[in-house]
Nucleic acid binder design. Structure first.
Length: 222
DNA sequence: TGCCAGGCCGGGT
DNA sequence: ACCCGGCATGGC
């Protein structure tokens, strides 16, 4: 079977089994952008607390964050963990955002995808996953997001080599799927769902995994 | 209780 | 070019 057919089949089956995951709905693009930094290697519940703190303090806006001093910002986002580094990273991002796009989201997302991605990656503290999350979930830009779950699920089921890099996995999807924002959005979220509930760390046999059962996709043993 | 969470950077090899 | 320690809170 062609890779593109396999990927679409997996998507359809996962969507049928789990439905829409509702990632980053209706919060507005700026909140998503902030959340993308706070979510780095961190449980989503903790991120929500930090966001609530920012909201309650009236700081959850481009201008609000731009004005806030580093120590105060760090205290507000404390529940998200790594609060000192993340405060710095948020400031870096916001500073860059104002320097290049006047703190205007519309202006920023009207930039072409590749240059914008490069710009985001030039910010200290914004890596590939964070950049792609911002592009996809805040900007509705078709940039596929890869994360630890994506890698684990795909490599366990022998869909990609174990030594695949981020960009290779990203291309694996983008080269074999229609360039569709909603598809990228839901696909990533569904892979996270599978990775969380079935394809867990320290469970290399991946028992009961819906990819193995429902699709007949081979599973890496041992 | 220890392990894990929607990473990334910087320094050492 | 890889590998690793550091960063930190909260849930199960």
């Amino acid at each position: 079977m062609k890779t593109s057919d396999t990927l679409m089949k997996i998507y359809r089956e996962l969507f049928k089994a789990f439905g829409p995951q509702g990632w980053w709905p209706g919060d507005g693009p700026f909140e998503v952008l902030v959340g993308a930094v706070l979510a780095q290697n961190t449980n989503w519940g903790n991120v929500e607390r930090a966001i609530q703190n920012l909201k309650a303090a009236g700081k959850l806006s481009p201008e609000g964050l731009h004005r806030t001093k580093l120590p105060e910002l760090a205290q507000l986002i404390r529940p998200a963990g790594y609060f000192n580094v993340k405060a710095k990273r948020l400031k870096n991002l916001i500073d860059w955002f104002f320097e290049n796009y006047n703190g205007n989201l519309k202006e920023m997302f009207s930039e072409k995808l590749d240059p914008l991605r490069e710009g985001l990656l030039s910010v200290k503290g914004i890596g590939r996953e964070t950049a792609d999350s911002i592009l996809l979930y805040a900007g509705d830009t078709p940039s596929f997001v890869v994360d630890a779950y994506t890698y684990r699920v795909l490599s366990r089921h022998l869909l990609i080599p174990e030594d695949s890099t981020y960009e290779e996995i990203k291309s694996f999807f983008e080269d074999n799927l229609p360039k569709d924002v909603q598809l990228y959005n839901e696909y990533h979220a569904l892979l996270v769902k599978v990775g969380k509930d079935y394809c867990k760390p320290r469970n290399p046999r991946c028992r009961e995994c819906p990819l193995g059962e429902l699709l007949g996709v081979p599973t890496l043993e041992g």
